[in-house]
Design a protein around this nucleic acid. Structure first.
Length: 510
RNA sequence: GCGGGAAUAGCUCAGUGGUAGAGCAUCACGUUGCCAACGUGAGGGUCGCGGGUUCAAAUCCCGUUUCCCGCUCCA
């Protein structure tokens, strides 16, 4: 649990083909990463594990793969357009960041305070005879301040409506607003921190209209709620799952895979009868925690963290936090989202997004329980928890990724003990039989010890070595990653052993 | 965005004004033959980029980019 360990994991991930910085030959692109030859395998295996446990084994959960582009109104309905486009400004001296509109509003509140002070003074002076209404509408100081407030308000509103950030800054300068912390008036430009990436749809500039790269996958499920429900004939409760990319223009990332601008989510929206949402919320909390624990890492690494402060759309929410090398951080969120999203899409689209409940003989907008897990964060959790530097009895060290066998990029490596005497041919023959069922790797270079260690470094659970005895009695040695123990077995038993140890089935039926 | 630090071979780094270096890694050949540790040889660097000072810059100065750390912001 340290920066040093985190750094080691990052460089290990790069050195062994798991994760590369994006566009590295051009000095990289901040907060964007590429998955390499081993990373993509691990990532796909995590996806498969999730998909199998959610869609495959639940008869009432189906998947979709919605497009990343959606109608812009989707994001108005979801609240993302309003919630994630604040004009921000920094004070150069205190290094504090403020919302520009909030700074101006605070200033207006001060003037408002002056008016109230004036009114209070009037009360004191005139006592019982005080006519507050008349005082407010005639007193020159009050009137002057009121005019000022109106003028500033109007100018701020215009600037915000026109997205005129320069004028917003000028307004702050004109009003001589100082930083409450430093007292200085040295402000940076006002910048729009829009969480959503915007692009243009339409090949000609004049016909182009703005579309967003989705900041979450959930909306692709909500807008297809009716399509899926009608064509699948599923009855409530039922779920729709999706794995897909999402994009957020994070201000500061710099936490490796933990916070990236382009990332992948695995989400399931479970549609339930209103009033039953809390049972399902509890149900999914438990289910999802079990999913994590099935990977076999220490249970102490996981923490359930209930949200006390809820978002406007939720009536219950919790996170499954994981202890990354950078501390306990959110890995998955489970939210009871009420009917907020579907109801909002009803309002904006004018389409009825309801379910006819034949038992109740009435229609309603279903409530939603969401499970939403970060794929890249899960990947990071797996590699950070698997990464292990061991001191061996002989004093040497080895670096091994103790990845759960069903998730490893390579399931078995096949080696000829030496690169002659027909051993390579025999090894390839074994490899050719296995490779249709298991991701295998063949290596004949370097000493056998080096090859074992290289496979340890990418987490390969089994190494199968062909030696001279193999040619005589058709047996090989199979070496297990964590114990480094070897066993001699007949070649025809290899597939069975691998199947037993690396199959998803055993994990899913636990 | 602000402040601090850094940038030299694939990796880790040495090199404080005078011929571009080491270890590991890579490749070839040989050797060994069950846990990274042998031998010989080879390839690989416009010293982040641009400008300046100087007879001469990896080295000093200015600018710039990227990364790291901290602050700030945020699912």
């Amino acid at each position: 649990m340290s920066e040093a360990r985190f750094k080691k994991i990052i460089s290990h991930a790069k050195e062994y083909g798991f994760v590369f910085p994006s566009s590295e030959i051009y000095d990289g692109l901040s907060a964007v990463y590429d998955y390499g030859q081993n990373g993509v395998e691990l990532k796909n295996n995590i996806k498969n594990y999730w998909w199998a446990s959610m869609v495959q084994i639940h008869e009432n959960i189906v998947g979709v793969d919605a497009a990343i582009f959606m109608h812009p109104t989707v994001w108005k309905a979801s609240g993302h357009v309003d919630a994630f486009s604040d004009p921000m400004i920094d004070n150069r001296d205190s290094k504090k960041r403020y919302r520009a509109d909030v700074l101006i509003e605070d200033y207006l509140a001060k003037i408002e305070g002056k008016i109230e002070k004036e009114v209070a003074k009037g009360h004191k002076r005139f006592g019982a005879d005080f006519n507050e209404e008349q005082f407010r509408s005639t007193h020159p100081n009050v009137l002057r301040n009121k005019e000022k407030i109106d003028a500033v308000n109007q100018r701020m509103k215009n600037a915000l409506d026109e997205n005129n950030l320069a004028d917003l800054k000028k307004l702050i300068e004109d009003l001589e607003i100082a930083c409450p912390v430093s007292g200085s008036k040295s402000w940076t430009e006002v910048r729009q921190f829009n969480l959503m990436f915007e692009t243009e749809m339409g090949s000609l500039a004049e016909e182009a209209s703005a579309v967003y790269l989705r900041p979450e996958t959930a909306q692709g499920i909500f807008v297809n709620f009716l399509n899926v429900q009608k064509t699948s004939r599923l009855k409530i409760p039922f779920g729709i799952a999706q794995i897909g990319k999402a994009f957020r223009n994070e201000i500061v990332a710099r936490q490796f895979l933990f916070r990236m601008k382009e990332f992948e989510q695995m989400e399931m929206q479970y549609f339930v009868k209103p009033g039953t949402e809390m049972e399902w919320y509890d149900y999914w909390k438990e289910q999802r925690m079990n999913w994590h624990k099935q990977m076999g890492f220490s249970e102490k690494k996981y923490r359930l963290h209930d949200h006390l402060k809820l978002a406007h759309y939720a009536n219950a929410a919790c996170d499954i936090d994981f202890e990354f090398p950078i501390g306990f951080k959110e890995l998955e969120g489970i939210h009871s989202r009420t009917n907020f999203d579907l109801a909002s899409h009803e309002k904006f689209s004018g389409k009825k997004l309801q379910y006819f409940d034949s038992e109740e003989n009435k229609s309603y907008v279903p409530y939603v329980v969401e499970t939403s897990i970060g794929l890249d964060r899960t990947f990071l959790a797996v590699i950070s928890e698997s990464y292990c530097e061991e001191k061996l009895e002989d004093g040497s060290t080895r670096t091994v990724l103790k990845i759960p066998p069903f998730l490893t990029p390579v399931k078995a490596a096949v080696f000829p003990l030496v690169k002659k005497d027909g051993l390579p041919e025999k090894a390839k023959e074994i490899m050719d039989k296995l490779k249709f069922d298991f991701n295998c790797s063949y290596e004949e270079k370097d000493t056998i010890g080096k090859r074992y260690r290289r496979q340890d470094a990418i987490g390969t659970p089994f190494c199968i070595t062909v030696d001279h005895q193999t040619l005589e009695d058709n047996t090989v040695t199979i070496r297990e990653r964590d114990s480094m123990k070897q066993e001699r077995i007949p070649t025809e038993k290899i597939a069975g052993i691998l199947e037993e140890k690396v199959s998803l089935k055993k994990v899913l039926t636990c």
